[in-house]
Each structure stands twice: as structure tokens, then as C-alpha cells.
């Protein structure tokens, strides 16, 4: 099982090629940013529903497995859930119902729905447009978009070694299990997990020393060359114009319904 989705997509791409898959990676990143900025600026429910529909259409046009992508979209952490649940009670407005002496307001509910729609529409578009890229291609595209070179290299190393270190973690966990370790809410458990993390860091550092030696052995002189050229095709331009058109339509919807 791979952690970042890139690998398993290449296996499928021969049979399952979506429209989005063939668009220039640089265009996909820029359009995802534009779309996110537009959607975040919306506040009317009509426009936000339109954005959600647009994101779902994008998903349908992509080779991403729909079920798993939607499950990932919905998974947000406890902080946000707590916030959304509390909003109806903390925003003053027309009473919807009363629970344990607290009044829930319609205004609060709508605000919670707005946040949920915005967050999901943006994250879904981001996962479809950018998350479907090969992680390494993402690095190269960011470099082509003039991201600082050292940040891109840091990202490429991180991507490369996440998988390796997860295996390392699994090995350490297995050896703990073999020695009878079972996680519970005890001091012993927390100390053991702390040692586990510490050991992972120690091994990671030693691994990085070997990597650097291996790189130097191959003539590394303090510069890594990123080989990948991107070219905009007419197809990319059409796709970009369509996304920009959708953004304009969303802004239009906001102008019509937002004022009312």
C-alpha cells in the first residue's frame, strides 16, 4: 500500500484516463489556486452549491476513484467538527430549536453549512487537479512555477522518503509487538512510543548521512538538476478557459444572490 496516491494511479492510468489527467501540471496548480481563492470569497448558498457541483463534475472527469476521494474530502478533524456543531448555538439569530436551554439559530446553521461547502469544494478540486499528479511531477511543476529551488528539493526528498520511513516505522512496531508490547493509556506506552519516534529520527539521520555520501560519490556538487519540460497545448488553454469561465459564473451567481 502506498501512502501518497501517485504510484497506484500510474498503474490504472493505462485503462482509466480522465480528461483532467492530460492537462499541463502547471496549469492544474494555478487553476486550483484561482478556483480556491474564488470559492473562498463566495458567501451565498447558491454560489457555494454551484461550486460544489463544479468540484463534483471535475471529480467525474478525472481518473480519481470517486468513493475514496469523497471519503477523504469529508474527513476533517475534531476541531472543525466541534466548531461546526457549536456555530448554530453561538451565532445570534432566529431560533430554530432549543436544546438544554441553548438556542440554535438558523443563521448559525447557515454559517456552518457555508463553511462546510467551501471547505469541501476547495479540497475536492485540489485533490482532483493537483492530488492526481505524480508526487515527483508536482515537485517539478512547482519548480517550473518559480518556487524556491531549495523548497522544491526539500519536498522531493520528503516525498521520496515518506514511504521508506513508513516501512522503518512498521519494522520497529513489529519488533515491539514481538516483544509483547500492547498500546494502552499508560506511562509505559507513551515512553515506548517516544523511544520509537526517537529511534526513527536517529535512523533517519544516519540514513541521510549515507544518502549524502552516495550523492557525493556520484558527483554531487551542491546542485540538483530537475529534468522535466512542460509545454502548454491548445487543450490546456481550452481547459483553463473553461475553469476561468466557471469561476466567473460563480462570481456572477454571488453577485445576483449574495446581495439579496
Amino acid at each position: 500500500m502506498t501512502l501518497l496516491t501517485g504510484d497506484h494511479l500510474t498503474e490504472r492510468s493505462a485503462t482509466l484516463r480522465g480528461l483532467v489527467d492530460e492537462i499541463d501540471p502547471r496549469a492544474r496548480i494555478l487553476l486550483a489556486v484561482l478556483y480556491a481563492v474564488v470559492v473562498v470569497s463566495l458567501s451565498s448558498l447558491h454560489a457555494l452549491t454551484g461550486a460544489m457541483v463544479a468540484s463534483l463534475t471535475l471529480l467525474a472527469l478525472s481518473p480519481m476513484p470517486a468513493g475514496r476521494t469523497l471519503r477523504r474530502m469529508v474527513a476533517v478533524d475534531g476541531f472543525i467538527v466541534a466548531m461546526l456543531v457549536m456555530l448554530p448555538f453561538s451565532v445570534p439569530g432566529d431560533a430554530m430549536f432549543t436544546l438544554w436551554g441553548l438556542t440554535a439559530s438558523w443563521q448559525g446553521l447557515w454559517q456552518a453549512v457555508e463553511i462546510a461547502l467551501t471547505a469541501n469544494a476547495v479540497v475536492l478540486a485540489l485533490m482532483v487537479l493537483v492530488g492526481s499528479l505524480e508526487p515527483v511531477t508536482l515537485g517539478h511543476a512547482l519548480h517550473a512555477l518559480k518556487c524556491p529551488e531549495s523548497l522544491v528539493h526539500l519536498m522531493m526528498f520528503t516525498i521520496r522518503y515518506i514511504e521508506v520511513l513508513r516501512d522503518e516505522y512498521a519494522r520497529l512496531r513489529t519488533s515491539m509487538k514481538v516483544r509483547g508490547f500492547r498500546p494502552r493509556s499508560t506511562w509505559h506506552t507513551y515512553r515506548s512510543y517516544g523511544y520509537l519516534v526517537g529511534m526513527m529520527l536517529v535512523r533517519a539521520l544516519e540514513r541521510s548521512e549515507r544518502i549524502l555520501v552516495a550523492m557525493k560519490c556520484r558527483g554531487f556538487q551542491g546542485r540538483i538538476i530537475l529534468l522535466e519540460e512542460f509545454r502548454l497545448s491548445p487543450r490546456d488553454v481550452v481547459f483553463a478557459l473553461v475553469v476561468i469561465g466557471v469561476c466567473a459564473a460563480l462570481v456572477g451567481l454571488e453577485a445576483v444572490y449574495g446581495a439579496a
Partner: peptide
């Protein structure tokens, strides 16, 4: 972060990424 240090920073960054996926029991 000179380029000499990028491998170390990258591998450690990956370890923190993996460490953030560890589930620790609490109650």
C-alpha cells in the same frame, strides 16, 4: 538550509510526516 543539508532535512521531514500518522491510545 544549504543544499548539503537538504537530504538530512528532507529525511527528517519525512519522519515527522510519518510520526504524525501514529495513533497513540488515550483513554
Amino acid at each position: 538550509l544549504p543544499l548539503e543539508k537538504i537530504p538530512a532535512a528532507g529525511v527528517l521531514s519525512a519522519s515527522f510526516f510519518v510520526a504524525s500518522l501514529i495513533h497513540v491510545p488515550l483513554g
